[in-house]
């Protein structure tokens, strides 16, 4: 009996290791999968892509809102050492510019309120840089999302023209 004590203790430790490894890696794995899927569907790295109006036939990510128009930009700060300039063009009605890190956390959201919003996205290591327009990303990779309220097709069509001026580019 005694010879099984150490293997059982080892197994118990592995249960704890497996539990927390799966728990903390799940969001990153899901986010990486989502970024890969978005890339395969034409969302570029370091540029905004204006998504088709969310419908059962066009949806790519869980729980899209049919009342919103989405523009997405994938980023990788390892490939953009001086950061990104991210600009959400001005539009009437609700709009927001939101940043999601590799763990799925929404670490910053800027509301449009009818005005253009423009920021520099930098890695966390650049925290010494000064400026009101700086957003620091906790991870090298992530997703930037613009949401605009478009309950009708006419609203969506109007926003489509505006979204062409959104920018997400390497500095």
């Amino acid at each position: 009996m005694k010879k099984f004590v150490l293997p059982l203790l080892f197994g118990a430790v592995m249960v704890v290791v497996g539990h927390f490894a799966a728990l903390y890696s799940a969001p990153n794995v899901i986010m990486t999968g989502a970024m890969t899927m978005l890339s395969e569907r034409g969302v570029p790295l370091h540029a905004f892509s204006f998504a088709p109006r969310p419908t059962p036939q066009t949806q790519t990510v869980v729980r899209p809102s049919p009342d919103l128009a989405y523009s997405a930009c994938l980023y990788d700060l390892d490939a953009a050492p001086r950061g990104l300039r991210v600009t959400m063009a001005a539009s009437e009605g609700y709009s927001s510019l939101s940043f999601f890190d590799a763990s799925t956390n929404n670490f910053v959201t800027i509301r449009g309120e009818g005005k253009e919003a423009s920021v520099r996205l930098l890695p966390q290591s650049a925290s010494a840089e000064a400026g009101d327009d700086i957003v620091l990303s906790p991870s090298a990779k992530g997703i930037i999302l613009i949401r605009r309220l478009t309950p009708t097709q006419a609203d969506y069509d109007a926003v489509a023209a505006i979204a062409a001026d959104d920018q997400c580019g390497v500095i």
Partner: peptide, 26 residues
């Protein structure tokens, strides 16, 4: 939901069922 304050269990669940959810201020 959507923030760094979420428990790891909620974060994992939201990643699967509500990816890209906004934090509560928005």
């Amino acid at each position: 939901q959507g923030s760094a304050d979420a428990s790891p269990y909620l974060r994992a669940r939201i990643a699967r069922h509500g990816l890209l959810a906004l934090a509560k201020s928005e």
